[in-house]
Simulated scan of single mutants.
Amino acid sequence: MKEIKAYIREAMVDQVVDALGKLPGPPGVTVLDVQAYGHRPGGDTLERTRMAKLEVDVSDDSFDRVVDTVLKHARTQAGHPGDGKVLVSELAGAYRISDGAFGEQVLDG
């Protein structure tokens, strides 16, 4: 199981979420508004910008398809600095609160 965190431009959120929703067995997505601080190319000071953070937990079988979808739909035209980043972590486990189920099957609903 993988946890995918994507920091993307606010303007790209609907496009990315819509594309994820068209995948077979679409994953659940959490979207948070965040303030990010980063350097502009060639700059040496931190600048604040508003971004969106998407969190998606997926099975190993869905991982490549979900990451590819985020990369394709979060990129602006030819790609620009500030389009964002995708970070991936291994999940040690997942539990469903309602019935205590454990494992990849809890990611499906």
Rank of each mutant, 00 (worst) to 15 (best):
G25M: 09
H73Q: 10
D64Y: 01
T69F: 02
G21H: 09
Q77K: 15
E47W: 03
D33H: 12
R9S: 12
K22E: 00
E10H: 02
D60K: 05
A52Q: 06
V31R: 11
E90I: 07
D68G: 12
S59R: 10
Y7H: 12
L107Y: 05
T45D: 10
T30C: 08
V58A: 05
V86E: 06
I97E: 06
I4G: 00
S62E: 13
H80C: 06
D44V: 11
L46W: 07
K22N: 11
P41W: 07
D64K: 10
V70H: 07
V17M: 05
A19H: 05
F63C: 05
D64G: 00
G84W: 08
G103S: 01
G109H: 15
G79Q: 14
L71A: 13
D99K: 13
V106H: 03
Q35N: 06
G82C: 11
A74Y: 07
I8D: 03
V16S: 02
Y95T: 05
L107A: 08
H80W: 07
T45N: 11
K5M: 11
L46E: 04
K53E: 02
L20K: 07
L20P: 04
L87W: 12
A94L: 04
V16E: 01
V70L: 09
L87D: 12
R65Q: 09
A6Q: 07
T76H: 15
K53W: 06
A6I: 13
M1F: 04
H73G: 01
Y95R: 15
G79D: 13
G93A: 09
G43F: 04
K53T: 07
A6W: 07
A92L: 14
D33A: 10
K85Q: 11
V70Q: 00
R9K: 11
K2N: 09
A94I: 05
A11R: 12
Y95C: 03
A6F: 11
D83C: 12
R96K: 06
P26V: 10
G43W: 03
V17W: 09
G103R: 03
L71G: 03
G84Q: 03
R48L: 10
V16A: 00
Q15W: 04
V106K: 00
P27T: 04
P41D: 04
R75E: 13
G21M: 12
A36W: 04
T30Q: 10
G38T: 07
V17I: 14
T30N: 14
G84M: 01
T69A: 02
V88N: 06
R9E: 13
R65L: 05
Y7L: 13
A11Y: 06
E104S: 06
Q105M: 04
V17E: 11
T30S: 14
E90H: 12
M12W: 00
E55V: 15
A11V: 07
E3Q: 14
H80Q: 15
G109M: 12
S62P: 06
D61F: 08
